[in-house]
Design a protein around this nucleic acid. Sequence first.
DNA 1: CTCGTTATATAACAGTTGTTATTATATCAT
DNA 2: ATGATATAATAACAACTGTTATATAACGAG
Lengths: 189, 189
Amino acid sequence: MPPKAKITREMILDAGLELIRQEGADALNVRRIAAKLQCSTQPVMYHFSKTEELKQELYIAADAYHSEYLMQFDPEKDDPMLAIGLRYIRFAAEERELFRFLMQSEHFRSQRMQDMTAMPELAPILEILQAEAQLTAQQSKQAFASLFYAVHGMASLLANNTIEFDPSYCSGILEQVFMGVIGFMKGEE
Amino acid sequence: MPPKAKITREMILDAGLELIRQEGADALNVRRIAAKLQCSTQPVMYHFSKTEELKQELYIAADAYHSEYLMQFDPEKDDPMLAIGLRYIRFAAEERELFRFLMQSEHFRSQRMQDMTAMPELAPILEILQAEAQLTAQQSKQAFASLFYAVHGMASLLANNTIEFDPSYCSGILEQVFMGVIGFMKGEE
DNA sequence: CTCGTTATATAACAGTTGTTATTATATCAT
DNA sequence: ATGATATAATAACAACTGTTATATAACGAG
């Protein structure tokens, strides 16, 4: 009996992400999304009864995209830890507004970054680190945390346009921090 | 001929900062500031013909407060580099909304943090670093940069409530990064 | 075909914002 | 005292927002 929907939930979420990407999270509202889809505001209100609900799902969608983005590196060629860090930074540079949007979120992935147990895909990486650098589980977690703070710091500055993105500069910093922290740990023993 | 102004520019700026502190930068608008000062919107529009102008001056005021905040440590007792870093982090924890507001600003101090020549008060600190750790000027700048990224990363995560503020944990991380980076530099020679 | 269901359009309401008249009032030079 | 004028209050406009009421049209079951 029902007409088939022209506007799907997914189309709305896509339009929302695109809007944030182009004009920033402040520009997010029902009418603008509708305009992007060339429809009225009704389909949007129909699929998401409250705008806040749409926003929450946009956080989830942006976070999923972010996660996927992070993992696009060559595990044969690159050290996973540094490669993920550099992807994290590149994301902030290339998807500035999405990164800023994500930072506002309560569900922000970085929350999980610190509790490694919540990110199963990182477990093998930490094991490699432990084995290669001969660290304890505790130490490798702490080394990861320190690196993550530097990574997030650079990313955050990039997303707010206070530094330029220079991949070789960034990886230099990351390597310095990472190797330095590991060296410091081993020196303390 | 003129009656003396009841509402001064400074009162407006103070009310604005207090508003951001309490309710976040999104709550900033002419009517709310007026309410805080128990006056109409006119005095605000009188002193700042456009709201954007007021916002710009609030950035400057917040930045000045931030700078002042950073320097409140005991130079006899604490290592300046680490102490300033810890103050930076503490600011993000205690003045969460002000930090988030500042991060939006184009004038954000961190811009200057990377170009040390723009922060004359840091010059003596860098000199001490060079002397004590026996680094070149270039190296000490780079060590400072790495430390700053980690500091800003932690601060940013704190301001967005994704980690807890634990001073001893934070200074542990900072020391680790700082000593690590210096060690790494010297090991490379 | 016809009818009920449902996705959509149109339009409107209410609240909030920046901004701008218009009006009132307090001060001080005269 | 009084009048010129800087400051402020009141009120309103226009733009934008979330949300809802009403009407319309598309689709498929019967």
